[in-house]
Amino acid sequence: MDSTAQSYFSQSYAEARAKFLAAADAAGLDAEPHWHPLLGRDGERLALDVLRQGPAKAKRLLIISSACHGVEGFCGSALQTALLSDAAWLSAARAQPDLAVLYLHALNPYGFSWWRRVTQEGVDLNRNFHDFAHHQPLPHNAGYEEIASALLPAHWPPSAADEAVLADYAARHSQAGLQKAVTAGQYTHELGLFYGGHAPTWSQQTLRHVLSEHGQHAQDIAWIDLHTGLGPCGHGERIFAGPDADTAAHARARAWWGSEVTSMADGSSSAAPLQGLMWSVIQQTCPQARYTGIALEFGTVPWAETIMALRADHWLEANPQADPALARQIKQQLRDAFYVDTPEWQQALLRQAFEVAQQALTGLNSDEQQ
């Protein structure tokens, strides 16, 4: 791993994408852009860039993805770029027989560029994976309904009365209950937090296309999805990302990535149980493959600060006429909630990401593979 940790991190989507593409070029690899229909904050083109290292028909596939939640891409992009810049990592991946690594850079490039967690549709991509086509009833989040008006008030900052509503909910349902109500996903407030949408987003449709193309020959798929915003600052929590009922996949995840792998289902994770999760797309696009995955979640600031930053950002989206100084403050607050721009944080993330990526290679190549 290169010692110049800071060189992989960026201050904008455009800078991050340029570094990723430069690292790919230096490694002798070509990235395929899937162009987004809108432009970025600075007028730049946006894309989900797909880079494959390894045989086109490899039976084992490791996916490493960034920016599912836009602004979280400051971390994920840097880690992808660092891997591509590391000769030892590239060599280790190439040495594995019949294995390919698929880098998905900026699943949600719009949110990355515009410093938003959601997509251009205002949707949380990791709550957007439902069977919309067959009009199945979408999940109902009664807890969110109860606190929606206080969570996203008409004025900013929120009043003492607004905060009292949230405190009362936590007193009655516990802090974990409040977190679940806020973050589990909701499908009724289009401008609200953690909105899952009523149709597949551009990012969901594009991801499906990419996985259908690149995963069709794989018999084993491992997926590391890079996130920030939950847990102790600088700590990378390894959260099982798979069906609750798939005990074999959960056991594999723990065997590959350690006994500290947590689960949203049993309450061991810093994340509350969620719905409409992205990993389910593997079962639909690559049903022939055995799947093992985690979300690698790096802590930034306390949860209360993260939620306050998200509330402010959603308020700003609903109130574009807000004072420019307040708007700048809110956007910086959001960026800082998901990206700690210090050498110590960056180095800690690089160390853990390299370990997790190497563990995935070892797991995919283990003698226990069927």
Score class of each variant (00 low, 15 high):
Ala248Val: 15
Leu138Asp: 10
Gln179Ser: 10
Gly28Asp: 08
Glu237Thr: 09
Leu211Phe: 04
Gly267Asp: 05
Gln216Phe: 04
Ala14Leu: 10
Trp256Met: 08
Arg252Pro: 05
Val281Lys: 00
Arg290Ile: 01
Val356Pro: 03
Ala47Lys: 05
Thr206Trp: 06
Val301Gln: 10
Ile330Ser: 01
Gly54Pro: 03
His173Gly: 04
Ala148His: 13
Arg328His: 15
Glu355Asn: 10
Gln136Gly: 12
Ala160Ile: 11
Gly196Gln: 08
His314Tyr: 05
Ala325Cys: 08
Val101Arg: 10
Gln370Thr: 15
Leu48Asn: 11
Gly293Tyr: 01
Pro37Cys: 04
Tyr187Arg: 02
Pro139Ala: 02
His130Thr: 06
Trp114Cys: 06
Ala22Met: 07
Lys57Ile: 01
Ile147Met: 09
Pro200Asn: 12
His130Glu: 06
Gly293Asp: 03
Leu29Ser: 04
Ile221Pro: 02
Ile282Met: 13
Ser12Pro: 04
Gln359His: 13
Asp323Gly: 04
Gln205His: 10
Leu125Tyr: 15
Gly215Arg: 03
His235Gly: 00
Ile147Gln: 07
Gln6Tyr: 05
Val210Met: 03
Pro158Glu: 12
Gln219Thr: 11
Ala164Phe: 01
Arg252Met: 12
Gly229Glu: 05
Ser203Ile: 07
Gly258Asn: 11
Leu46Met: 03
Ala245Glu: 12
Gly76Gln: 10
Gln219Ile: 01
Trp115Gly: 00
Tyr8Ser: 08
Pro200Lys: 13
Ala56Glu: 15
Leu102Met: 02
Ala148Ile: 12
Pro139His: 03
Gly54Thr: 08
Asp336Trp: 12
Ala160Glu: 15
